[in-house]
Amino acid sequence: MVLIIIDALLMLASLYLIYIWVPPAAILGETSRIVYLHVPLAWVSTLAFIVAGLASIQYIRKNAIEYIHCARSSVHIGFFFSILTVITGSLWAKVMWGSYWNWDPRETSITLLLLIYIAYFSLHQIVHTNPKGAMLESVYLVIAFVASPFLIFVVPRLYPSLHPEPVINTQGAILLDTEMRLVLIISVVTFTLFYATVLKLLLKVYKLEYVCTEDVS
């Protein structure tokens, strides 16, 4: 409960910071405000994938049902966040680069992440009644997890990038502005906390569901 309240307050604060307090970036203008949403969303999509991958490894090692619940919840959240990342990203791309989709390396990476999430859901739909289902899902996620550095760092490098460096883009030199950096950090923290809150809630839901099916039988 405390977590929810803190996060709600932080969310309001960052909304104020993003839309009112922080000055627009020099060249990008008012559109630059989307960066404070886009970057945290992309960060959470990646974080959710990492958490899901680690949870799956733990499930395979320990065979405890909590880990698979954690992986599933994390994938659910990551899926929605990566869709939002793609939407905010392509809106911004339209404004800045002139078209919604440019096959830019970062766009390719997030699409691949989205594809992995979709593949996981397809597998989950098919196996969730199977007693071996949880293990199959975990194994798939671990394989994808191991392959992902190649997907994220190698494949995109084969094409030239439009995104500003460094990797988790902070708009390079333009954003060195302390105010902007501060807002970005606050926003990332807020969204990470939001992720943690939702993850906790989903875990509770899964646990209740599991206990219920246990009781019925």
Partner: peptide
């Protein structure tokens, strides 16, 4: 992936969906 799809007896389609993101590199 072939082993996973064989175990859930939904071959073909599922195999492609699962292996595509992994074999893309």
């Amino acid at each position: 992936i072939a082993a996973i799809t064989a175990l859930v007896q939904a071959r073909g389609g599922l195999f492609t969906i699962l292996s595509f993101p992994i074999t893309l590199p």
